[in-house]
């Protein structure tokens, strides 16, 4: 499972970086989105990968650490997802404004001279 998760993070991050370096604003946005997925998975995996383990003790329950997963990375990743989502939405608005004002979707707001 560790291998699958780390491969997924690697593929997402690699594609994200490649897209981020492209000249079109849409590609940059998708690149940032992919990178943020990679980072979110990475945060999630820092708590250790467990299948079927609870993060929170039930009412009156006494658990051992071995049977539970770390809740903090899950809380962190939730915050990171929300913030990443909001800022990406904001970036999209600016992207549309730039497209409208400059008439091009190049990241510099003008086409490269050839």
């Amino acid at each position: 499972m560790e291998l699958v998760v780390s491969l997924a993070i690697g593929v997402l991050a690699g594609s994200g970086v490649w897209l981020l370096l492209r000249p079109r604003t849409f590609q940059v946005t998708i690149g940032l989105a992919l990178l943020s997925y990679a980072v979110n998975l990475f945060i999630f995996s820092t708590g250790g990968l467990r299948i079927g383990a609870d993060a929170i003790l039930g009412q009156g329950e006494v658990g051992t650490l071995a049977a539970f997963t770390d809740p903090v990375p899950q809380a962190l990743v939730l915050t990171a997802i929300v913030i990443g989502f909001a800022t990406t939405a904001l970036l999209l608005v600016v992207l549309l404004a730039a497209r409208g004002l400059t008439g091009t979707d190049h990241v510099d707001g003008r086409e490269r001279e050839r």
């Binding site: 940032l32 943020s36 990475f42 820092t46 800022t87 990406t88 600016v94 707001g109």
Partner: peptide, 25 residues
């Protein structure tokens, strides 16, 4: 402003992702 702002936002979003990677490590 929009042209400069686009660069500013993209760079800072990337910086935020690096921040998250650092924090989680």
């Amino acid at each position: 402003r929009v042209r400069a702002g686009l660069h500013y936002i993209v760079i800072n979003l990337l910086a935020s992702l690096l921040f998250l990677i650092g924090v989680s490590v």
